[in-house]
Amino acid sequence: MNRSKFDLAVGAFVALGILALLFLAMKVGNLAGFDTGTAYVIEARFDNIGGLKVRAPVKSAGVVVGRVESINLDGETYEAVARLRISSAFRFSKDTIATILTSGLLGEQYIGLESGGVPEYLTQGDRVMKTQSAMVLEKLISQFLFNKAAETPGQTK
């Protein structure tokens, strides 16, 4: 076997390997998304983020528009500070509402953005003023029981 045949076979091998890597990155992974494009980071503060995790999706009307970049606790106000990386392709008004939602009954948590009507838009470093914390199951249940108790005082006695 001569040199050029080696070269050809090895060239084909390397090309095939790189194709497989691209397949993994584009088709299996999410590189094809907006991660490569430009983005801006906004901040949202929540009383409770529940089970939200770093890299969780940020969705608007069900469409993924970004990801949670980091989650920290503000040591003074005891609020959770989530930094959201939003694709530059999408703009949201200053009075956007950020809500922590759950996909399905027990699915992963994500942040939903609902744009308001103000003509000014959020830009790099801005803070989302209106937020709604995660539903925590225990709180929900105790709230439900409390309301029930308040509605029908006679029956509990």
Partner: peptide, 12 residues
């Protein structure tokens, strides 16, 4: 579902 859960940096 695969694309939503497989992360390029962490997994691949």
């Amino acid at each position: 579902q695969m694309q939503a859960s497989v992360d390029v940096r962490i997994d691949i």
